[in-house]
Write a protein that binds this DNA or RNA. Sequence first.
DNA 1: TTCTTCGGCTTTAGTAAATTGCATAGGAAC
DNA 2: GTTCCTATGCAATTTACTAAAGCCGAAGAA
Lengths: 143, 143
Amino acid sequence: MQFTKAEEYGIFGVLYLAEKDRAVVTPLSEISKAQNIPEKFLAKIFQSLSKSGIIRSHRGVRGGFTLAKDPSEISVKEVLETIQGPYHLMKCLGDFKSCTMNKVDFCPLREILLIAEKRLVSVFDEYTLSDLVKWEKARTAAT
Amino acid sequence: MQFTKAEEYGIFGVLYLAEKDRAVVTPLSEISKAQNIPEKFLAKIFQSLSKSGIIRSHRGVRGGFTLAKDPSEISVKEVLETIQGPYHLMKCLGDFKSCTMNKVDFCPLREILLIAEKRLVSVFDEYTLSDLVKWEKARTAAT
DNA sequence: TTCTTCGGCTTTAGTAAATTGCATAGGAAC
DNA sequence: GTTCCTATGCAATTTACTAAAGCCGAAGAA
C-alpha cells in the first residue's frame, strides 16, 4: 500500500520539466542528475510517459524531452496511471472474477474499497503539475 | 499500491467473528476453513489483532477467538493499521527525514500525498465491522 | 495427565520492485 | 555524409518483500 519509486521518480521528472519553459529540450542526464534519479530507470518511465502523450521526446544531439502540453493540462492522476496502470486497491476491484475468496456475488470489503479508491483518485485528479509547481514557488518565495 | 493478503484475510477473519454472537468462541481452524484462508497465516494475523485488543484469544480445548468489543466499536481502520502499521502512501509521510530525494525542506509531492492519505484513511475510519455485516445481511436478504 | 488450541520463532518459496547493461535507431551539427 | 549524442527497446540482474509452511513450546480445559 505504498507508492512505487517509479511513480515518485515519474512525478519529479515531469515536475522538473514543468518548472522550465516548455520550449527547452532537456536531456535525461540532466533530469536524473538534478532530481537524483537513476538515469536508466527514468528512461524507462519517460518512455511510457512519452507514449501516452504527456511528454515529447527529441532524439539526436541536444535531444531530450519536453512537456507535450501545458503543466495545467496534466493531472497528477494522468502521470501516475500512465506509469503504474489504473489504480486499484485490490485486484478484484477491476475485475470481480479475480476474487480469491468465496465472494462470488457480494463482498463487503469490495464495497468499502470502491469508496476509498474513488476518494483517493479524486485527489490526484484534482491537482495538476502547475499546482505543484505553484506550491513549490510559493514556498521558495516565502523563505 | 495494493492491499496485502494479510489485510484482506484479517478483515474477513474478524468479519466472520462479527457475524456470530460475541460469546461464541471460534477456533482458527473453523475460520480459516470457512473463509478459505491458510490457517498459519491467519494465526499470525490474529496474534497481532489479539495483542492490540481487537480480538481475544482463548487457549486450550474448545479454545479459539472472540471479538474483544462490539463490532460497532471496531473500525476498519483499526483492523488494517494493526495488521499493516500506520497507513502511509510514502515513507517520508511518516518521517520527513526518510526522503530519498533532495527535498530537505519542502516537497510538493508530499503535500498532495498528505491530502490523499487523509481522504483515504477517513473512509476506513468511518466504517465499522457492524457496517460491513449490515451490508452483507441486507444483500443476502434482498436475493 | 492428556489432548487441543494458541504463541512465537524460523525458514522457504514465490513474486514484484528497482536497477543495470547492451545493442539499435534516430537525428542534429559539422 | 560522417560523427557524435541521445532516446529506444529488450534482456538480465539484484534486491526486497509478500505469502506461506513448519516446528516446538505454552496454556488450559476435560
